[in-house]
Design a protein around this nucleic acid. Structure first.
Lengths: 332, 332
DNA sequence: GACAGGTTCTGGAACGGTCCAAAGAGGGGC
DNA sequence: GCCCCTCTTTGGACCGTTCCAGAACCTGTC
């Protein structure tokens, strides 16, 4: 009942295990008859190479670990898609781990991946523990994807250009005639960049005095509560730019509850172009991060580092685009 | 620069590698001084056990593979949570693979997991290839979680009780005074069970003639189009029960577009209690699968099989509950 | 028929752990 | 001082691969 090994295949094909190894790795230094015999034996036995043995011997796993920080907020799906396409084309597999699941259990969420000796690590989203990551980066290539956190030395960062995205939003709203525009801000590097670029763009259009910025926690609830507060002001804004789609959903709920129609009375813009924004029932104008491209470039970074490219960590930015849907309209 | 091995630790602590192995596995047959010396050496060198070497030698990986079929529809998040809690408590790690990502690339999505020689496999959602799964099940325990597909011999199934769930929905709506109730059906075992139980419950309440069933593809778009058709009928229903939350969102959009207010003019119920149903902007009445419980029981099944429990595959059903939110109201 | 040169195949040493049989150390009783 | 027994510690085989050095086998040439 034990799984067949390379020796079992060798015996059945009447050759040495070395030859089986050669055949299975596609060597052309093998006579066709022997090759056929080996392949037939392998097929008949249902042989599968043992990845543990292989990686022990090869000193590499052909596997890249991907650390996600929260499966509940699925903005990263396109990113994984892009990542996988390039990795797969280069014979690498991808292993996922959810940081949130392991966080409660106390240990570092990357531990299982590191014990498996992944050849590289992609951290998607906010990073768990910068210090620990720096140590990891000394051993294997590490790429931070989808978030602009300050990275430890030697770590590449690939993300959307948040400043450009926020600029697109601001100019879209200004172009629609909005002047009093609120921003529901977030935290972290991402929140900071979007907010600052939004403010700068408003200033450039002479609307410095119309800017309204409120902090939030990037959740639906946060977006909701902040908006209730904003819309109760006497000088209430005619448009709201939320730091991400989830918070924007909160904005929509608040507007609805206060009797304002979107987009007639209030324009709303999100960020990330998640699947939720695409729901017809939501149909949110938002910024598309070109996550697929971010994923591809993250894979590219890893591949280059595998090839031996050293050097300090670099920052790659993908150009976002504005996805105009039904939640924005000319100012009332 | 190479990662330290057990030999490096042994040398630094001035003992044999066997002793290091003993200490690291927590044996109590070791003198305290030696134990301390070993632990100190390991800490100083930043030693991490090599999972490949360990599993090669132990003939097991202490790892369970989890095959997801689509990260975009995140109904499985709670399930993973439940799964992980029990597995982790038993010293097992969890490795995720997305079937959809690998499907386009041609090969069996479980391959990477099987090459790694996972000790068990959990398939979450609709299963990819029943025949292939049967073969896998001959070697390692396999559990099908969250979906009631017909399983190959020896495979356990853990899922929500779809019949009970659909019954809860039907009785809730009937209790609110609805008579003409439509069901937007899905496909697969899940779709079948929910539909049949819905029909049976309606019949039991003498509403066999009021049942309206339309097939759909379980997407938002499908829910939308089907609802437009349903609501254009002269005898339009006063309530719609959609096969899942995503399709229910489509129902909401269609109602909105046709000028019907939910829940005043139309009650809508979904299924799965996904995070989308919980959004204030959606606030959908839906069925909670108790996915966390499903995950826990799936883990339980695996653990029992690891302990040597054989036998034919069993089916475990978790009891669902109705989550009443804002999309249902008394019939107009 | 010996030899060179190429092609094809094989044995054995890694890789980094676990585990077992046996060696070594220490203590107690005679 | 010797023997026995228990508690610690160790060397070495093994897990399933890869890879290298060299063996075996061809083919052609002089």
């Amino acid at each position: 009942m034990r799984a067949p090994t390379i020796r079992d295949v060798a015996e059945r094909a009447g050759v040495s295990k070395s030859l089986v190894s050669l055949v299975l790795r596609g060597s052309d230094q093998v006579r066709p008859e022997k090759r056929d015999a080996v392949l037939r034996a392998a097929r008949e036995l249902g042989y599968r190479p043992n990845a543990a043995a292989r990686s022990l011997s090869e000193q590499r796993t052909r596997t890249v670990g991907v650390l996600l920080n929260d499966l509940r907020n699925p903005w990263f799906v396109d990113l994984l898609d892009g990542l996988n396409s390039l990795l797969h084309a280069n014979g690498l597999r991808m292993l996922l781990a959810d940081a949130r699941l392991n966080r409660r259990t106390g240990q570092d969420p990357a531990d299982p991946l590191l014990d498996l000796r992944v050849d590289g690590l992609v951290v998607v989203g906010t990073l768990p523990d910068p210090a620990a990551l720096g140590q990891v980066a000394e051993r294997i290539p590490v790429v931070l994807a989808g978030s602009r956190e300050p990275a430890p030395p030697g770590v590449d960062v690939v993300a959307g250009d948040d400043e450009r995205g926020a600029l697109l939003v601001a100019e879209h709203l200004i172009g629609l005639g909005h002047r009093r525009i609120a921003h529901i801000a977030g935290y972290g590097a991402v929140g900071e960049l979007r907010r600052r670029s939004f403010e700068a763009t408003m200033r450039r259009h002479g609307l410095a005095d119309e800017v309204l910025v409120e902090p939030s926690d990037m959740t639906e609830e946060g977006g909701y509560r902040t908006t209730v507060r904003l819309l109760s002001r006497p000088d209430r804004p005619t448009a709201v730019f939320a730091v991400n789609d989830i918070a924007a959903i909160g904005v929509l709920s608040a507007a609805e509850e206060l009797g304002l129609r979107v987009p007639r009375d209030l324009s709303v813009v999100g960020y990330d172009n998640t699947s939720i924004a695409r729901l017809r029932h939501v149909w949110l104008t938002t910024v598309d991060n070109s996550s697929h491209e971010v994923g591809r470039r993250a894979a590219q970074c890893l591949l280059e580092r595998f090839e031996g490219a050293g050097g300090a960590g670099r920052v790659h930015l993908a150009t976002p685009t504005l996805e105009i849907r039904g939640s924005t309209a000319p100012a009332p």
